Every structure is written in structure tokens, then in C-alpha cells.
Computed example of a mutant assay.
Amino acid sequence: MSRNRTNALVIPQANAALDQLKYEVAQELGIAVPQDGYYGNMATRDTGAIGGHITRRLVQIAEQQLAGQFK
């Protein structure tokens, strides 16, 4: 049975940049991200806050890029 991964990256090379962004956002929020990559011991509120801030930052980056294209 094959799995349909909805969170697969369109550009696999972006994985390192997204990981870096995750650690930057977590540090800004004062949330310690587990170095072993296991998030099972983190509060849902913390992981959600990190994800929400990442989304906001990615939207902001995209808006800035689009604004630069249409000048």
C-alpha cells in the first residue's frame, strides 16, 4: 500500500532551510526544540506556535518577493 504524503516538499533542497527557520522561530519564542528530533514530549501549544510563526514568516517572504516582481 502506497502512502500519499501531503507534506512532501516541492523542492527537497529546501529541507535544510526550513529546519533552520524552525530553530530560529523556536529560539525567538523561547521554546527549546529537541535535538533528537522527537517532538512527543513537547506541548501541542508550543509546536503549534512554532508552526504558526513559520507560516506567517513564509507568507511574509512570499509577499515581499511578489511585491518586488511587480514594481
Rank of each mutant, 00 (worst) to 15 (best):
G37H: 10
A26E: 00
Q64I: 15
G37R: 01
I61T: 08
R5F: 13
Y23P: 01
G68P: 05
V59P: 03
I61G: 02
I61H: 04
N4R: 11
M42N: 07
N7T: 12
Q13W: 09
S2C: 07
S2H: 09
N41S: 02
A26I: 01
Q60D: 14
G48N: 14
R45Q: 10
I50W: 02
K71P: 09
V25L: 00
G52Q: 05
I54P: 04
N15I: 10
L21V: 10
S2W: 09
G30N: 11
G52H: 05
M1L: 05
N15E: 15
I31V: 11
I54G: 04
Q35Y: 13
Q64N: 13
G51R: 08
H53W: 02
K71W: 09
T44V: 14
N4S: 08
T55L: 09
A32Y: 01
I54Y: 00
K71R: 12
A8H: 09
A49V: 02
Y23W: 14
D46C: 04
Q64V: 15
Q27A: 09
L9K: 07
V25W: 00
P12N: 03
S2M: 11
A8T: 07
A67R: 12
L58K: 12
V25I: 07
F70D: 10
Y39S: 06
Y23I: 02
V59C: 10
L21P: 05
T6W: 13
K22F: 01
L18D: 02
A62E: 14
L29E: 08
H53A: 15
P12T: 04
I50G: 03
I54L: 12
L21Q: 15
G68S: 14
Q27G: 05
A17E: 08
Y23F: 12
D46L: 05
Q13S: 15
Q35F: 05
K22W: 01
T44W: 14
M1F: 03
Y38V: 05
N4V: 03
I50K: 01
T6E: 14
Q20Y: 10
D19Q: 11
A43M: 06
G30L: 06
R5M: 06
K22Q: 08
D36Y: 02
L9Y: 08
A26M: 00
Y23S: 03
L9M: 07
I54N: 06
A67V: 11
A32N: 06
N7R: 05
I61A: 09
I11G: 06
G52A: 07
A14S: 13
N41H: 00
I11K: 12
Q65S: 13
V59Y: 11
A16V: 04
F70Q: 10
R57T: 04
T47E: 04
V33T: 04
L18E: 06
E24Q: 12
Q35E: 15
G51Q: 12
V25N: 00
G30Q: 14
D46H: 14
T44A: 13
K22P: 01
N4W: 08
L66C: 10
Q35T: 14
N7H: 09
A43N: 07
A14H: 03
A43G: 07
D19Y: 03
A49Q: 12
Q60K: 10
Y38W: 11
P34W: 06
G48C: 09
A14Q: 07
Q69F: 13
A62G: 06
G68K: 10
L66E: 14
G37N: 05
D19S: 08
L58H: 02
T55V: 00
V33I: 12
N4I: 02
N7D: 15
G52R: 06
G68C: 13
Q20M: 13
